[in-house]
Design a protein around this nucleic acid. Structure first.
Ligand SMILES: [Mn+2]
Ligand SMILES: [Mn+2]
Ligand SMILES: [Mn+2]
Ligand SMILES: [Mn+2]
Lengths: 219, 219
DNA sequence: AAATAATTTTAGACAAATCTAAAAAATATT
DNA sequence: AATATTTTTTAGATTTGTCTAAAATTATTT
């Protein structure tokens, strides 16, 4: 089935929130999509009628099998385009998300599978997020948030939240990229700030909020 | 200013029809866009109010300076994406038009200028149509329709109408591509059919309607 | 120059996606 | 357990883009 741009954005939003909590609620989706709760309810009815959603009034909702499949297709398109924008067009990682937000809605399967091949079947997008393959299989990730990394453990940046160009701008400033070695030296209870060592740079401080949005491979 | 996908499709349609006749009329645009005459009138009002259109009720319409500029931007995006689909992803020329019809609405200027550079600043799309540069300058074309080519003149295919995958399917069958040498040997008054010599192949017949939609450089 | 035909516009309706304000239901607090 | 608060849904509008049928205008034919 074909879905509208709006429907696709809602599907993707629900998928994202499902990763954090079993059932999703109206308000959290409204705030993610920057829309009103009433609009969410309207769309829930539609997605339910299209059989993508398990939804019981007043008791949250989640994508069913079919809905998840659809979400993975959209995410695949989004992340492949992001990879293209960086690897082929040389764009900066803080600019690509908004453009991919539009490109993801062009839904020719042949286009996307050929793009995938052209790019060399990448498994991670420029923010470190896994790219589903053409069968909708998402590569596994075992990463933890930087804020949960044990003191003095050697780790590498695996991914960063793709939700904020402002975060990426700051990470550029820290010299943080996907793959950069990092170690937490000290944690401050006052506000969750961390003292970190990034690659071979001198020790630096990083805020708790930033640390929450940075993920690492611990090994 | 930003325009909706619909507005952009109308702008592009008007631009195309303007190439054939000074002023455009409601019914021809309706038939090009496969929509009703009433919908055309509705959109004309909107485009006029947005100052893209010179429009007088019952007396046709055409894009003004600003409207033409906007049309050229959309055409540039469309043709660059078509070039990408063929040159980088290896898609067939009869499949690309519909996909570019969607991709053309992603309007980041930086994206398109980088794509242009990545592709090596091509001047023709896979159907032989000229690609406007980043300043909206359209490369010149001096081509004539195959049906107007003098008998026995050596010519080469310069472009083919991009409006019909069915035509392209047939051209594949004839072995016709952009650049293929062609010569008209005889013209039949009965239905405008032509006897042609394509490259080094044996003589073949081609219909008048096909000939109208094939363009050549005459030299 | 009427009458007729063709073209274009208007009137009115509808679906999709959104909103605000009010009502209903669920949850938390006393 | 009753009340207050929060969350969610519904009711009713609005905008965009579309449609059909009818009216208005222009063009063509007699
Ligand atoms: Mn999107
Ligand atoms: Mn990403
Ligand atoms: Mn289009
Ligand atoms: Mn083309």
């Amino acid at each position: 089935m074909k879905f509208s741009e709006s429907e696709e954005n809602y599907i993707k939003g629900i998928y994202a929130l499902q990763q954090k909590s079993k059932r999703v609620n109206t308000n959290s989706l409204a705030s993610l999509l920057e829309t009103s709760a009433a609009s969410i309810t309207d769309m829930l009815k539609k997605l339910k009628s299209k059989k993508l959603l398990d939804y019981k009034k007043y008791h949250g909702f989640r994508l069913n099998e079919e809905g998840n499949r659809e979400a993975l297709k959209i995410i695949r398109r989004h992340r492949l385009w992001e990879y293209f924008l960086v690897s082929k067009l040389g764009m900066d990682w803080e600019k690509i998300h908004d453009i991919a937000e539009e490109l993801e809605h062009v839904s020719s399967k042949e286009l996307i599978d050929r793009l995938d091949q052209f790019l060399g079947n990448p498994t991670r997008d420029p923010h470190g997020d896994p790219i589903p393959n053409e069968f909708g299989i998402m590569p596994e990730v075992n990463q933890i948030s930087l804020k949960d990394l044990q003191l003095k453990r050697s780790a590498r940046i695996s991914s960063v939240s793709d939700q904020s160009p402002e975060l990426m701008e700051m990470l550029n400033n820290y010299g943080i990229r996907i793959g950069t070695p990092i170690k937490v030296l000290q944690s401050f209870d006052f506000d969750g700030s961390l003292k970190v060592k990034i690659a071979r740079q001198p020790d630096q401080m990083i805020s708790g909020l930033a640390a929450e949005n940075i993920f690492v491979y611990d090994y």
